[in-house]
Each structure stands twice: as structure tokens, then as C-alpha cells.
Amino acid sequence: MRRKGNLRLAADVEQTDWSALVFRVRDDQDKAAFAALFRHFAPRVKAFLMKSGASEALAEECAQDVMATLWQKARLFDAERASVATWVFTIARNRRIDALRKSRRPEPEDLPWGPEPEPDQAEVYEAQQETERLGVALAQLPLKQRVLIERAYFGDLSHSEIAAETGLPLGTIKSRIRLALDRLRQQMDVKATEK
């Protein structure tokens, strides 16, 4: 597993309009568009699942599953609401619940509006930008804070286990997570006013 540099991350996300590729899969069952999505997202889903405690074989299997779900549910993708990365994360999270026998996670009820057939381009761009900005903000966090957030998402350690591992009392961990989130939010506000 390797970590990408911040600049690569930003450039990479900006270069490709992932939503447009999902629409091509949805509308034309476009295999080339799917292959591009697969090359980018499958290795990331696999890394996510392995960091969550799955064996390589299980992670490989689930990553293929997640990508197959992306194909199958392309018409449910709401590009105004979420970037493709965010959508892939939610599919991978649900797949992980089954694969690693985690607790069921009921979903909130449906929002009164669904995906638009012709989503507003500005909103689609905004959703992708938000993930990108969060990625940059995440990469700029002090290492300790970033690791805590990532671990929370990988779910490989509970809060009390993190405390045991780092020798810090639980309260310190909690306040650090909160601090990290505050910083993330501030970074996002700064970026938003820069536009």
C-alpha cells in the first residue's frame, strides 16, 4: 500500500470527471468508462478493506463486488449530492459490514428528491470539489490527527483501543478528534471563501 502525495491527489481528482464516467456506464453500459473507474477506485477499495482488517483475498473479492455494484446501481448515483469517491465509500462500507460481520447499519429514510436525470453541472462539480478539498485538508493535518481519523474510518481500532495503543487517556483522544474535525471545517471554510 502506498500513500499518494497531496498534490498528486488534487491533480488526479481534478483531471478526471468521474461522474461523467458513471453516467456513461448508466446510459450506455460503456465498458471503457467502467474500466477507467475500475482502475482508479478498485485499488482504493481494496486498500480500504485491507486496512479494515480483511485478508488480501477477501479484500480483492469485495473490491470486485463493490465495483460490480457501482455498475448495477449507476442509476442511483446522485452526483449533485456526493462525489463518486464518496458514493464508492458508502458502497464499500456496506460491503465491509457483510464481509467482516460488523453490526447492521440501518439507513435514514430517503430524501424527498432522488437523482436528477440531467444533474446541474455546477452542483456536480461542487460535490467533487468538496471531496477534493477534504482530501487536501486531511493531508495537511498533523500526522497524529490524520492517523486518528483514518483509523476511525478503517474501524481497526475502537477509541479505547487507540487510547491503549498511544498511552493517552480517552478524553484526550476524543478532544483530538474534535480538534481535527474543527480544523478540517475551518480549512473548508477558508477554501470556500477563496472561490
Binding site: 500500500m1 486498500a47 486496512k51 480483492e60 464518496t86 464508492v88 481519523i149
Partner: peptide
């Protein structure tokens, strides 16, 4: 927080078979 999950997932890769 889902979007933050999207950012976390973007952050590392692992070669597919």
C-alpha cells in the same frame, strides 16, 4: 462525514490481482 470517508478512501491504494 461520508464525504470525509470518500477522502479517506482516495488516500491509499493497493494493487488489484
Amino acid at each position: 462525514f461520508d464525504a470525509l470517508g470518500g477522502a479517506v478512501i482516495e488516500d491509499s491504494t493497493c494493487e488489484m490481482s
